[in-house]
């Protein structure tokens, strides 16, 4: 027997979703306006603000930096996060359970505290170049996603398959790459893409580590907003929304979006 949801509740939920989606629709609208100020509904229709993004060299540069950082930082984090997640799932008896808590420390410690501390100790204290410090910061930031999303897949993996391969004479490292990894591919892809978007959108760590000549897209957006308040920012925002759509499509195809409600 399925209970009916009260119509007032449904109306309330509809309002909530209007509240969630409305502002994003407004951004899309303002990005299409012909006017040089932000207005909604748009006056006239034009794509000139999208062209303008690529005419501003700071946006071109920071887009490339942000992309390299998100892919590179996530790859680094995966390279060390997958073995850690594997060890946690495979050697549950041999490893203390608190290791799992250590890997999520980057979420637990306020991001802005982490950014400030990295600036002090790593960028200035250890004299890391800007890009290196950003790499380390972003790899650290996304480590929890790598370990936990891959870990969720590994926990569902039947390790006796791996044992079968090993007992049939397959070297352990080879069994890992040929048997374990292909079986948790969905988790790796989903973890990678969630980490990627987290890194791409990061403000609190990057704001402390960017410096002369090297910046990321969100930091550049913040800087641009302080000087100009034109539809270019709206256009960049829309581009970023396209990235979000791509990310969602990939998560849906791998673990399914309902994974995010767990």
């Amino acid at each position: 027997m399925r209970q009916k949801t009260h119509p007032l509740l449904i109306a309330f939920a509809a309002l909530t979703f209007a509240f969630l989606i409305g502002p994003l629709v407004i951004i899309i609208g303002t990005s299409l306006s012909e006017t040089s100020y932000l207005t909604f509904p748009p006056e006239g229709l034009s794509l000139k603000w999208y062209e303008n993004i690529f005419e501003i060299s700071a946006f071109r540069r920071t887009m490339v930096t942000s992309f390299i950082l998100a892919v590179g930082g996530t790859a680094l984090s995966m390279a060390i996060g997958i073995p850690a997640a594997y060890a946690m799932a495979r050697y549950r008896v041999q490893l203390p359970a608190f290791l799992g808590n250590i890997y999520v420390l980057p979420i637990l410690i306020p991001e802005i505290v982490l950014g400030f501390s990295l600036m002090k100790s790593v960028a200035i204290g250890a004299d890391f170049p800007i890009m290196a410090a950003l790499f380390v910061g972003h790899a650290l930031l996304v480590l929890p996603y790598c370990v936990r999303v891959v870990g969720a897949s590994l926990n569902a993996f039947d390790f006796s398959i791996e044992e079968a391969a090993v007992s049939l004479g397959c070297p352990r490292w080879k069994a890992f790459f040929l048997v374990v990894l292909p079986n948790v591919r969905a988790g790796i892809i989903a973890g990678f893409i969630l980490a990627f978007i987290t890194s791409l959108n990061d403000v609190s760590i990057s704001i402390f580590l960017t410096g002369p000549g090297v910046s990321t897209l969100p930091i550049q957006l913040l800087a641009h907003m302080e000087q100009f308040f034109d539809p270019t920012i709206a256009a960049v925002s829309v581009l970023l929304m396209f990235v979000t759509v791509g990310v969602m499509a990939i998560v849906e195809r791998t673990l399914g979006l309902t994974f995010l409600t767990k």
């Binding site: 994003l24 978007i197 791409l200 403000v203 308040f229």
Partner: peptide, 17 residues
Amino acid sequence: VFPLLTGVVVRSFAWLI
């Protein structure tokens, strides 16, 4: 999920407008 995965700068910018 869509707003959740959209960056904090973009989402705050909406309220500036």
